[in-house]
Design a protein around this nucleic acid. Structure first.
Lengths: 145, 145
DNA sequence: CTAAAAGTTGAAGTCAACTTCAAGTCAAGG
DNA sequence: CCTTGACTTGAAGTTGACTTCAACTTTTAG
């Protein structure tokens, strides 16, 4: 597959694919003239990358968990720690979802006035601060809702 | 509470608090001399902001769902759409978590060699691409885990 | 053959979310 | 009175993840 094909299949722009290759997240298997050729497996890899990003991993982190090179260090500790992080995130996100849905349905004029919204909020908020050593920062940002 | 107190309670640095205030996400209730004074409720608000971020909202989005000003538009559609997004994210994140845990436990030398990892991957990947109109781009990241 | 379309590069630009900096204000203690 | 330390400001700097650009090479269609 050439770069345009991959872009078409995955929706990831060519510029991003080149960027990822430079960063070592994906690899092209040779060139056709000067054009990169990609193995079809790259599509799965890109899905994995997107997934890792959604989980709040940086591209560098994704690379370290993804590279099947000499891999002397898969670092299972790191992996399960990350899994724990993700689980915690999931927990909080469910609270967020509930909060959002409630806010969408709540007849109260202001969210501040609604006690059950307050309750959801508090529940969701617990563990944000004062949870573990890392103070507060956690998550990813997505755009384009 | 002065800014240092809020920072201490929430772990959010003073610089960030000022930044948030400038952005209109939080408000100080007057000044003590030239120093901001914050109502205690700001702590909850900050938790909500962090939560919104974790859910993948931009600060601007958080502000629009948070501002209890004249609010002619809470935009319930947007809220439940966001809730749907969050739910979808949760679904994929659970797959990520499973994938990570498997990768941590799997005895196979390379993830590429493990069929069950592949399966988890595919499951997680489904719906990343070709899910809805938005092609693929989802997340920016922050690190410091 | 030639011109447009598609790929290549490195470098520079953009954006969000902060952080850092220089310079200044103010209250309190010695 | 004068220094110290916590706060203020606006402006500039940083980081991660890309995107855009200018200049160039190939491939492909007419």
């Amino acid at each position: 597959m050439d770069i345009a094909e991959v872009a078409k299949r995955t929706g990831v722009p060519a510029s991003t694919l080149r960027y990822y290759e430079k960063k070592g997240l994906i690899h092209s298997v040779g060139r056709d003239g000067l054009r990169r050729r990609f193995a079809p497996g790259v599509v799965d890899q890109l899905a994995l990358i997107a997934l890792g990003q959604a989980a709040g991993l940086s591209l560098d982190e994704v690379r370290t968990m993804l590279s099947p090179d000499g891999e002397p260090n898969i670092d299972r500790q790191l992996l399960s720690a990350k899994a724990d992080d993700v689980d915690a995130l999931v927990k909080r996100l469910r609270a967020v979802s509930n909060g959002l849905r409630h806010a969408a349905a709540c007849p109260a004029p202001s969210h501040a006035a609604c006690p059950s919204f307050q309750k959801l909020l508090k529940a969701a908020a617990l563990g944000m601060f004062a949870a573990h050593d890392t103070p507060a920062r956690k998550a990813p940002r997505r755009s384009r809702s």
